[in-house]
Design a protein around this nucleic acid. Structure first.
Lengths: 205, 205
DNA sequence: TGACATACCAGACAAAAGTCTGGTACGGTG
DNA sequence: CACCGTACCAGACTTTTGTCTGGTATGTCA
């Protein structure tokens, strides 16, 4: 019936599927069918399989909602975007996601797997001279070790704090970047390194 | 059988589902079942539905792979994301995109239409005390006017510069936030306000 | 003109996945 | 102790979804 010019519908199908995939909701064949008012799921399937054959879509065959972004576009060209939880409170116990209350998710461009990143809102002015102000959001890569000079997040007792790590005469210390604050030795019993700050973000009015 | 302490498995199920959702691949009930080696899909379902009842998960009932992030987490996430061009060089002529060379695009969460935003890499230390360092990326909302106190981007001659706008005795001035630099009056012939900085980003190592 | 490709449809089958009924086992609690 | 709630299981039903077979219509190109 209403035949469209060659390749035109296909591009629109690709755009539709891509959008859904980026939203985290892979569409079904029939969802594509209805979005384009096809009267047969097969029509949608032909477009989808065509895009897969052309390498413009990936697919997990047989599984429901199995169409994916192509492996090429994910691995090579651009740095993938991951959703990072902004945790309002870092629990003293486990560094796992489950025990922290998540306020919202932030999109970060990183090659790091999503699970190993979290975001934290900074309180206080102790890192002022490093350009990290109160209210800023820091993206943190979970890691138990860091190099001297790295800006890190550590758990002191029950509180998460952002400082610069300095290894001074073989002893690790957390150095604030503000002359009003004092360094904190990291070898305390109740101190633990949570991760390294890989990005800082600040929103202005 | 292997009964686990109350609520423990549930938290792990939540972590599992959340991770899958963030990866853009919502799991099926049976995928959860197998991930936790339950012998009945119903067991997985009970945990999932429990998490939905507790408001920790959302769900599109009946549909396959229908579990979602809870509405609370999505509410803010639903602020649209726009792709903002990171311009390497701000042309002296027009403030339009076409004449600027775009290095890459950055994802920003903003209700502002995409066309009215651009991003710029900061050079120099003139805004050091405002927490904006050399190499930082600022997201700028194009606007010809701004309030006193706003951090703005202005074109001075052929060069874009980031400063704080101060209206001082009726005269607009661009104030650096670094005592080593001098304020610049904005009423010069070759000066023009490009926009207001709405976000600052810094990537560390 | 015929061979071929694209775009689409009808209707069905089969696998995947959501859902339900009815259970067992264990721990706490009045 | 009986009672309730949590954690789990077996097995089946139903819907959703992927897939297939066999078609029509239209355009291109030798």
């Amino acid at each position: 019936m209403g035949k469209t010019p060659a390749g035109q519908t296909r591009q629109q199908v690709l755009a539709f599927v891509r959008q859904r995939l980026l939203a985290g909701e892979p569409p079904t064949v029939r969802e594509v069918q209805h979005a384009f008012k096809f009267r047969s799921p097969q029509t949608a399937r032909e477009h989808l399989e065509g895009l897969v054959d052309a390498g413009m879509l990936g697919k997990e065959s047989g599984k429901s909602r199995g169409y994916r972004l192509p492996a090429t576009a994910r691995g090579r060209a651009s740095i993938p975007q991951v959703l990072v939880p902004l945790v309002g409170h870092v629990a003293a116990g486990s560094p796992s996601l489950a025990t922290e209350d998540v306020d919202e998710y932030i999109t970060v461009r990183s090659r790091t797997p999503a699970g190993s990143l979290f975001a934290l809102r900074v309180r206080g002015e102790s890192m002022r001279d490093a350009g990290i102000l109160s209210g800023d959001v820091v993206i943190v890569h979970r890691q138990a070790r860091a190099d001297s000079g790295d800006i890190v997040v550590a758990l002191i007792g029950d509180e998460a704090t952002v400082k610069r790590l300095r290894v001074h005469r073989g002893r690790a210390e957390l150095h604030p970047e503000n002359p009003d604050f004092q360094p904190i030795p990291l070898d305390r019993e109740d101190a633990r390194l949570l991760g390294r700050v890989i990005e800082v973000r600040r929103t202005l009015g």
